[in-house]
Design a protein around this nucleic acid. Structure first.
Lengths: 219, 219
DNA sequence: GATGATTTGTGCGTATGTATG
DNA sequence: GCATACATACGCACAAATCAT
């Protein structure tokens, strides 16, 4: 009887916070949609209190927006916002990748390499869900390598603000192969312990991503 | 009758959120202190509901911490945390200053210059409160110049996580003059439209700040 | 462990504010 | 403007979890 623990359920307000986030990611809630405490409370079969608390946290995270009349809506980034968000990501992720290039272990490099291989397979099989998943995974692995949890959370929160659009991005365009190419270049720079190059490649990759996203949103 | 508007008071939960933040900044609440819903509710003469909502938001911001038993304490950064936070600030602020060097208007440059002059006066008069205030102002001005509101919020939130320590930093050490010198160097680089140099100077400045802070905390 | 005292989690009522016809 | 419907802000009560004895 080694590791037998009872699982304590998380409080409602935490589960609700997480669930709303996922609903936005999955497109069940769309940017601009208005949210009602009572309606969600009914849906989750709770009272309004935990829903309210979840709202506050998500507002602080930026995923929900509250106006002067206390109406709450799903964050709908303007074009300018998207640029600002990417500017922040650029700052944070370029630092992350340059640290990763300095401190990645062999095992971590191998795992990164594996992720790229899996992406390649997924592309051949045209498994769109998996492609997105492995692309996300690639970025996550880099951030994990650099080991700064706070950096990770900041980047994650920024990602979640445009997650909905970004899924469209990969799904609807033929960019999967190009993304893989760029990821491979970044990986090689990390493997060769070349922080400057890794940084440069990542910046280029992110800027491409942004251009593509903007085209998509403008349509 | 030009601009006569009635001021609507902000909801309690917002005021409470702001107040708790200030209590931490001012050292009324110290890192590690435990917070009780009921106690604060009593203090603010409200019910627990708005206090709880304020807690959720502050937890999300990182200024409060909740453990697995739902106990809430004021965030107490470890040495490692402080380094991580500064790493993130470095990433974000260096980007901000390099953008500022590219796009600052003459008026904005003049205002920056004024801030430095005021700092100088404050140092001569040994007005410690003002020195801190102008130093903060200098950084804020740079971030405002670059015009990315999200970048600003990210940096502000990071600052607030170590604000309490940073006040100690300036107050207790004789660093005021050195800080002014470094700020002046950054300013000159911006004025000369030299993003790389501005960036470099800011990185050095931030790293000095970090070293100093760490020394202070270790004592 | 069992018990009472704290503290947090959740449900619900009511007052106030806002939109709509 | 007025009445109605609806949404949010806040308070309060009780349940569940935790702590101290």
């Amino acid at each position: 009887m080694d590791e037998l623990k009872l699982v304590k359920p998380q409080p409602f307000y935490m589960q609700i916070q997480q669930t709303i986030k996922e609903m936005i990611w999955k497109g069940i809630l769309m940017p601009g949609d208005r949210l009602y405490e009572a309606q969600l409370a009914k849906q989750f079969e709770t009272s309004r209190s935990p829903v309210r608390e979840a709202f506050r946290a998500l507002i602080n995270e930026g995923l929900l927006v509250i106006d002067e009349k206390s109406q709450i809506t799903v964050y709908k980034p303007s074009l300018g916002d998207v640029r600002d968000i990417y500017e922040c990501r650029l700052a944070l992720e370029s630092r992350a990748v340059s640290i990763a290039a300095q401190c990645a272990t062999d095992l971590q490099l191998e795992r990164l390499s594996n992720t790229l291989k899996e992406t390649c397979k997924a592309i051949e099989r045209k498994e769109k869900e998996k492609i997105v998943q492995y692309n996300v995974c690639f970025h996550e692995q880099i951030i994990n390598i650099c080991g700064n949890l706070r950096l990770k959370k900041l980047i994650d929160d920024l990602h979640s603000l445009t997650y909905f659009y970004r899924v469209l991005n990969v799904k609807e365009s033929g960019r999967a192969a190009l993304i893989l190419k760029e990821h491979t270049e970044i990986f090689n720079a990390i493997k060769n312990r070349n922080p400057e190059k890794a940084c440069k490649k990542l910046i280029k990759h992110t800027k491409n991503d942004l251009e593509n996203l903007i085209n998509l949103i403008e349509k």
